[in-house]
Design a protein around this nucleic acid. Structure first.
Length: 490
RNA sequence: GGUCACGUGGCCGAGUGGCUAGGCUCUGGUCUGCAAAACCAGCUACAGCGGUUCGAAUCCGCUCGUGACCUCCA
């Protein structure tokens, strides 16, 4: 299997040719959501980014195991000792069992991801289901001398680790700088250094989610779950680890430290980071309170939204920007995406009906090559779609009779669009444009359109317009072409 | 304060030493009974100031502005 895919490796700060450790197998791990709230637009970014990667790797013939976790424990509200667990806090507020919260928002996350047409991961492990494994890794790190216990809690010894390995290599941070720049937080007097992080926390009496251990009755530190579950399902060394840029430090840095401290060598070959969605130039985030949930986007029920936006509009909107760039939310941009997507789908319908000629007036092979070059260049989907829109122009021109296409090129072009739009791009036509199937609606429409055509021939425009207008009110748009009329659902 | 990004036309957003990005919008035209769609054409930008170069939006420096991370966040 020959891959031409290059991906930007955050660790090396450059694009590298992707070479799997054990082809044809590829292991990829992506940080999933902390299920304590409704999934928002920000969650869609990594989900779609790594979905494209997953789809493209599979398309290329790799056997991919895609692991995406659900964080349902151990995620502290703050790093301070009295910090509350996010899941727990919400549970207390709503008088529900913590696992009830977890289940509710996990379900919601799954629903929204399905609507965005992201493929489910191969394995979706929960942190709470891997407490034993997490304890084992804590013990391993303790045994290797890179952690210490204090009052029932276990902390990672960053300073000691940094003497043998390099802490901060992913984020470009230097331990000495961290020392002077880490903010003062309450309750960290137990730690040797402010930048040490918790592997195991002793639970305060009011803490509901707790598990017994040799150190204390408590719960695991947040960073631990990803190291543990990636190792368990992908091995001590695996290919790709993805996540949002905001997780780069400290989360991913700590993951590297934990895995290296436990296993003696680094686990991840390629680190990938998607950028943030912004709103008015500011990061959209839970803590900033400026987020829009996917539910609100799909329904249009939010004060900032001028209309509802379909899941595919959201998906296409994201694909029109590169995953490593920030993407600014606005109604205008989303509406532009919606129209552009409609134009693309309309061209795909046109593509089905094109008439072939002896020769093509356009180089379909070159277009195909440009598409592959784009996706191989660190998943450059905006360029990919720019090329696909060049093809749209060509398709429409063939339909208009100003360009021509050969039968073999037509087959090639159909496959090209099928592969890149649906299979790799993960878009689906939800507009209800008739897909050529023979059903009652098609028959009905044919009768109506023929009646209208007759009226037009007889110059009875009152009748023809009446049919068009009433259909339009019913959500069916008529387009007159040289060879008759076409229709589509709006 | 430290570290790192970024600043592109009306909007979104690629590119990164010489060759049209693309989408949306707008204007004019073709087609059409009229529309819609489509096609053709136009509007042609790279924060500012210096420098390197035959040539810079692209490299270097400075200035201004914005953002991310440094605390939980996709």
């Amino acid at each position: 299997m020959e891959s031409k895919l290059h991906i930007y490796n955050t660790l090396k700060r450059k694009k590298e040719l992707f070479v799997p450790l054990n082809p044809p197998y590829v292991g990829m791990y992506v940080c999933g959501p902390t299920v304590y709230g409704e999934p928002h637009l920000g969650h869609a970014r990594p989900a779609i980014t790594y979905d494209i990667l997953f789809r493209y790797l599979k398309y290329s013939g790799y056997k991919v195991r895609y692991v995406r976790n659900i964080t349902d424990v151990g995620h502290l509200e703050s790093d301070a000792d009295e910090g509350e667990d996010k899941i727990l806090k919400k549970a207390r507020l709503e008088q529900l069992e913590p696992m009830e919260i977890v289940q509710f928002y996990t379900n919601s996350y799954h629903d929204k991801m399905r609507e965005l047409n992201t493929l489910p991961p191969s394995i979706e492990p929960h942190a709470s289901g891997h407490i034993i494994e997490q304890q084992e890794m804590v013990q391993k790190i303790l045994d290797n001398g890179f952690a210490y216990e204090k009052n029932g809690s276990v902390y990672f010894d960053v300073e000691k680790y940094n003497k043998k390995f390099q802490y901060g290599k992913l984020s470009g941070r230097v331990v000495e700088d961290l020392q002077s720049n880490t903010r003062d937080l309450d309750g960290q007097d137990q730690k040797k250094n402010a930048f040490d992080f918790a592997l195991w926390k002793k639970a305060e009496p009011e803490h509901i989610m707790r598990w017994p251990s040799g150190w204390s009755e408590g719960f695991p530190g947040w960073h631990l779950e990803c190291s543990v579950m990636s190792t368990k399902y992908l091995g001590e060394k695996f290919d790709i680890h993805g996540g949002g840029m905001d997780l780069l430090f400290p989360h991913h840095e700590c993951e590297i430290a934990q895995s290296t401290a436990a296993n003696g060598e680094e686990a991840v070959q390629y680190w990938m980071h998607n950028n943030m969605i912004t709103i008015d130039g500011q990061k959209m985030g839970k803590s900033l309170g400026n987020f829009i949930t996917l539910d609100e986007l799909f329904s249009g029920d939010h004060k900032l939204l001028e209309q509802a936006y379909s899941p595919m509009t959201i998906r296409f909107f994201m694909l029109q920007a590169h995953y490593r760039s920030t993407l600014d939310f606005s109604n205008e941009a989303l509406q532009a995406a919606e129209k552009g997507l409609n134009r693309l789908f309309a061209a795909l319908e046109t593509l089905k009906k094109l008439k072939t000629s002896e020769k093509s007036s356009f180089d379909v092979q070159a277009l195909k090559q440009r598409c592959f070059d784009a996706i191989d260049d660190d998943l450059n989907t905006p360029i990919l779609f720019a090329h696909l829109f060049d093809g749209v122009k060509y398709i429409n021109s063939v339909a208009a009779g100003t360009e021509s296409i050969s039968a073999s090129d037509l087959d090639e072009l159909k496959k090209l669009y099928h592969d890149f739009v649906f299979e790799i791009g993960g878009l689906k036509d939800e507009s209800g444009i008739a897909s050529g199937g023979e059903n009652k609606l098609d028959e009905l429409m044919e009768i109506l359109l023929n009646t209208r055509l007759e009226a037009k021939k007889n110059k009875d425009f009152a009748t023809s317009d009446k049919i068009r207008n009433q259909l339009s009110e019913a959500g069916i748009v008529i387009k007159d072409t040289k060879d008759g009329s076409e229709w589509e659902l709006k």
